[in-house]
């Protein structure tokens, strides 16, 4: 008796859940966990830039640096490929914001050269260390600079997360490493359409 009751309860709950739920995102849904997109940094042309430059666009925010040997290049290239898969008229609705946390080496000109190599929808921004710390703290991540070697080269440790914001600037998804280009493209298109 009890088992039958429990079984029917479970089944009805499953049905209800199935009716109400939107299809799952491929990325991790982080809606409401973080504040909306907001920053004050320096753009690729050396001028100040804020989130207003990306009004009504889907933004994928990513912290990194151009000398990054392993994490940044594949992440940027996967994001660029995903955007290339979108229908042509939607591509400019999606922007990648590459925040360099290595302002010492990543001058605006150098950043521009680097992001242009990956694609048109990728914008590099950087700033003074306190400005960058503020943004990193806002999105609960951090970065640190390693000791320079004899040639002055150093590594920068930074988070691997890609934060995706919808057109209204609200945080929606965190892209994961193991997401394929197709999965990434499908999430970005859904956000651009909504």
């Amino acid at each position: 008796m009890m088992t039958r009751f429990l079984a029917s309860l479970v089944v009805s709950m499953l049905i209800l859940a199935g009716c109400e739920q939107q299809p799952e995102w491929n990325g991790r849904d982080i809606s409401g966990l973080m504040p909306p997109l907001e920053f004050g940094l320096t753009g690729e042309d050396g001028d100040p830039i804020t989130e207003e430059a990306f009004a009504d666009q889907v933004v994928a925010l990513f912290f990194g640096y151009t000398h990054c040997p392993d994490v940044c290049p594949p992440t940027l290239s996967r994001l660029a490929q995903a955007i290339q898969q979108l229908p042509e008229e939607k591509r400019d609705d999606v922007q990648v914001l590459f925040v360099s946390v290595d302002p010492e080496r990543d001058t605006p000109e150098h950043l521009k050269e680097y992001t242009d190599y990956f694609g048109d929808q990728i914008t590099g921004v950087t700033g003074e260390i306190p400005q960058l710390r503020k943004l990193a703290k806002r999105y609960r991540t951090t970065f640190s600079h390693g000791q320079p070697d004899e040639d002055g080269n150093y590594t920068v440790s930074h988070g691997q997360a890609v934060y995706i914001f919808d057109r209204s600037g609200k945080v929606r998804l965190m892209a994961r490493d193991e997401m394929s280009v197709d999965e990434l493209a499908s999430d970005l298109e859904r956000l651009a359409d909504s």
Partner: peptide
């Protein structure tokens, strides 16, 4: 790992 560690 996702958000970065305070030191390596």
């Amino acid at each position: 790992s996702v958000c970065g560690r305070a030191w390596p």
